[in-house]
Amino acid sequence: MADVREALMSGRNSEGARVRRPLSPHLQVYRPQITSTLSILHRMAGVALAVGTLLFVWWLAAAADSDAAFSLAAGVMNSPIGWLLIAGWTLALWYHFCNGIRHLWWDAGRGFELKEAHASGKFVVGAAVVLTALTLIVGALAR
C-alpha cells in the first residue's frame, strides 16, 4: 500500500500544472548550531538510555532470580566493559535529565530568546558533565 503521506505531496507549480511538491531542504545543508546539536543529542541520549534499560532489567531480574544469575550479572557490570557502559549511560542519563528540564522550562513558555536558549544549552552541557563526574567519583569511592 502506498504511503498515505503521499497525499500531502501533491501540489501545483506557478503555472498551475500538477507537480510533486518539492521538499524543504535536507538537514545537511544547515550549519550545525548548539541548539540543533543539543536537540539531536537529547534524542540520541534517550535511545541510548532505552538500550540501557536492558542492563537495568537484567540486574533486577538476576537479583530476584538466584545467586548464580546475580553473580553473572554483577560480574559483567564489574568488568572494564561494564564500567565503560555504565559511565556512558551515566552521561546519557544526566544529559537527558538536564536537557529534559530545559525542555520543561520551554514548555512553560520561558527561555525562548536565542540568547537564553544558547546560555541554557551551555549550562545543560556543563551540568551534565559535572553531575556525571560527581556520580562516577562518588561511585568509585563508595565501592
Binding site: 546475580f70 564489574n78 542519563l93 529534559g100 514548555d107 556520580t135 562518588v138 563508595a142 565501592r143
Partner: peptide, 26 residues
C-alpha cells in the same frame, strides 16, 4: 511531560540508591 516530571525525583532517588549499593551482594 507528566512522566518526565515524575522521573526527575525518581531518577535522583534511584542513582543515589544504586551508588549506595555498588558492589553489594545479592
Amino acid at each position: 511531560r507528566v512522566t518526565a516530571v515524575a522521573l526527575v525525583p525518581l531518577a535522583i532517588w534511584f542513582v543515589i540508591g544504586a551508588i549506595d549499593h555498588l558492589g553489594s551482594g545479592r
